[in-house]
Nucleic acid binder design. Structure first.
Lengths: 147, 147
DNA sequence: CTATTAAAAGACTAAAAGGTCTTTTAATAT
DNA sequence: ATATTAAAAGACCTTTTAGTCTTTTAATAG
């Protein structure tokens, strides 16, 4: 569904938020292990996300990644778009530039509602709501974010 | 939705079938122009499709690509799978290896029905049904397969 | 103040996807 | 038979995605 970078980014962000809820600021080594992603690649990705303003980080002892609690919840759509670009889930299912309700490609009628559902899904789910969803029965199952 | 090769393959196959219905066997130059794809890349892709048995071709004068009318209609799923592999539209939306109804990832409940719809779409639509769908009001609109 | 810790920066490599081009093979019209 | 046409084969190139690693910067605990 998503490319690798997006996958790692989403899993990383959700893991950070899960730990933040416990008052912890995880670092790259911990994050990469828990989300089952390559160490250095995870580092690069998390750093890009900080530069893009999705979350904060601190260097040095007791450093790590964390969310600014004053900010609104972060829809995963924002992350996906920042990584994969504007085109995501807006194009024609058949790859035609000109395809709409007036001049539909043969797949349009069937694909349009699917595309809408995907858009709803990535708009309505946030890093925070997903992190909360991992707490089934009040406790986070270990290793759940591993691929 | 699909990668470039799959897009070109599907558009190419539908174009061939549209022309076949008119008793014609288009060649690579014509196909690549009509589906708005790179000439040599289109050639390579069409040739792979022939080697995989999806359609037939003839060399030399009056040569070109065409479908074996004795064969069943070709679901686009078969083409997609041959190009993109088995994994297509079967994985977890969140990229987790272990994600099912029993141990769902936070997106599972929302993504599962979408994935099912996509699977239905690619199973039920065939190259032949799409080619017929392009004939709106009995006549094929020109340039409709251009991207 | 300094050793340690951990993120930031950025150079580099590998693999896959996307695309180009030339040469060879085969069909057929003349 | 042969010139012409068009697919087949396959070598190459470019870009993007994925991943690795080293060096630098900054925070803080002692």
């Amino acid at each position: 569904m998503f490319n690798k970078e997006t996958e790692y980014a989403l899993r990383g962000l959700v893991y950070v938020q899960v730990q933040n809820l416990k008052g912890l600021k995880p670092g790259i080594v911990e994050i990469s292990q828990e989300i089952d992603a390559p160490l250095f690649y995870t580092g690069k990705i998390m750093q890009r996300l900080v530069k893009q303003g999705f979350l904060l980080s601190m260097k040095g002892k007791n450093g790590g990644f964390f969310f600014d609690e004053k900010k609104d919840d972060l829809p995963i759509r924002n992350v996906i778009q920042a990584i994969e670009g504007e085109k995501t889930y807006s194009g024609c299912g058949f790859g035609l530039k000109h395809c709409d309700d007036l001049r539909p490609c043969p797949l349009h009628e069937q694909y349009a509602p699917i595309r809408n559902s995907i858009n709803d899904l990535i708009t309505n789910n946030t890093v925070q709501s997903l992190a909360r969803a991992f707490k089934v029965g009040g406790d986070l199952l270990p290793g759940r974010l591993k691929s």
